[in-house]
Design a protein around this nucleic acid. Sequence first.
DNA 1: ATAATAGTTGCATAGGTGTTCAACTGTTCA
DNA 2: TGAACAGTTGAACACCTATGCAACTATTAT
Lengths: 121, 121
Amino acid sequence: MKAIASKLDNCDCNVIHEDIVADVRAKMPDDETLMNLADLFKVFSDSTRVRILCALQYSELCVCDIAFLLGMTKSAISHQLRSLRQTRLVKYRKDGKSVYYSLDDEHVGNVFEQGLLHVCE
Amino acid sequence: MKAIASKLDNCDCNVIHEDIVADVRAKMPDDETLMNLADLFKVFSDSTRVRILCALQYSELCVCDIAFLLGMTKSAISHQLRSLRQTRLVKYRKDGKSVYYSLDDEHVGNVFEQGLLHVCE
DNA sequence: ATAATAGTTGCATAGGTGTTCAACTGTTCA
DNA sequence: TGAACAGTTGAACACCTATGCAACTATTAT
């Protein structure tokens, strides 16, 4: 049954367990969904962003607060807050000269918890 | 109170809400833990690795199976399986010429679920 | 108006990463 | 023994990204 292998032959081998592969393929979410999933985890894959999100779990904070807390420049923090804004993980409100950031997603804490279960043991 | 600001003055600003920052700092996990957390999410941040882990949720698979399933070369898959091995997310057994991979962490599915809650809505 | 501060943004750059290619090991089968 | 195949690995390359720097806006205070 080389027919199936030929329709997607970017791979450099033959299928060994044709039936199992077909079964798994049918059960898997589509590629777009898994790509979005990877993109979400990409946001959590940087320690600066993780520390920002973690801090915001305890309190709303302005950019200077976060910069001081993490020992980094306002610019670096602002750059990371930008991607957190774009992925809708944080929201902000302006008050005078300051901009206050807070979490904007109920799932953030859950994702953290599951991750910590793996890290701390 | 510039004293506190001076002990960690990589940042380019003054603390605005000193008490809140101190409180948040006390509650946060230490930096090493959060770094490990980011490293864990880094593994999930690539769509190839996500697809591999997702596939392995349904069945044990050999390298050729995965390569065919994802339409990629054995080499590319093998490289990614290496990092999944190193982070203890997959385990493997050899049988003849083939190497069969399977999930090696009970939390993988949970992390996926929480992520999907965010992605699918 | 002027100075000072909070915050953002574009650019440059150094470091990291995913894939390909080629060479290699090890197993199976004729 | 030798061919064929499964899988791994290291080097090279292209791409991505996190941070620093400098310039900018906006708000507040003197």
